[in-house]
């Protein structure tokens, strides 16, 4: 898959996953990799960038069970950015789906 495209989709995924609750790195990686195949290591550079751009703030939680967790919390502008990307994705996927359906129809003729 095209690298830029994949990055965009992964950005969308981590933003969407943090909409309802804060999540820690491993949790994000794990949840996404259950859905589709990724090099799991690429999520962390992404998280670093989004944090530096002000879309996330992070905080560390020590846990009695298991290792400490670095949580990612969406900021207000992160929220806005997520909404924007979701809208873009919807339009984009709608377009692609229509093209696919038309393609299949033409094939059947």
């Amino acid at each position: 898959m095209n690298v830029q495209f994949k990055k965009g989709v992964l950005t969308l995924c981590v933003l969407v996953l943090t909409l309802q609750k804060d999540r820690y790195g491993y949790e994000l990686v794990h949840t996404i990799s259950e859905k589709f195949l990724i090099a799991e290591g690429t999520i962390y550079p992404l998280l670093r960038r989004l944090t530096k751009e002000g879309y996330f703030t992070t905080y560390l939680v020590e846990s009695n069970e298991g290792p400490p967790r670095k949580y990612y919390q969406l900021t207000d502008i992160g929220q806005e950015y997520a909404d924007e990307l979701i809208q873009e994705w919807k339009e984009f996927s709608l377009g692609v789906n229509q093209l696919i359906e038309e393609g299949i129809l033409n094939e059947q003729k």
Binding site: G25, E40, G41, Y44, P67, R69
Partner: peptide
């Protein structure tokens, strides 16, 4: 950066995965 991946390994090991397995899926 190293800290992020260290933490990732710790979580993976805690879940019972092998270090080699975690490293492979990290890429």
């Amino acid at each position: 950066a190293i800290e992020d991946y260290e933490e990732h390994f710790e979580h993976g090991v805690f879940e019972g995965r092998s270090e080699a397995d975690i490293a492979t899926s990290l890429g």
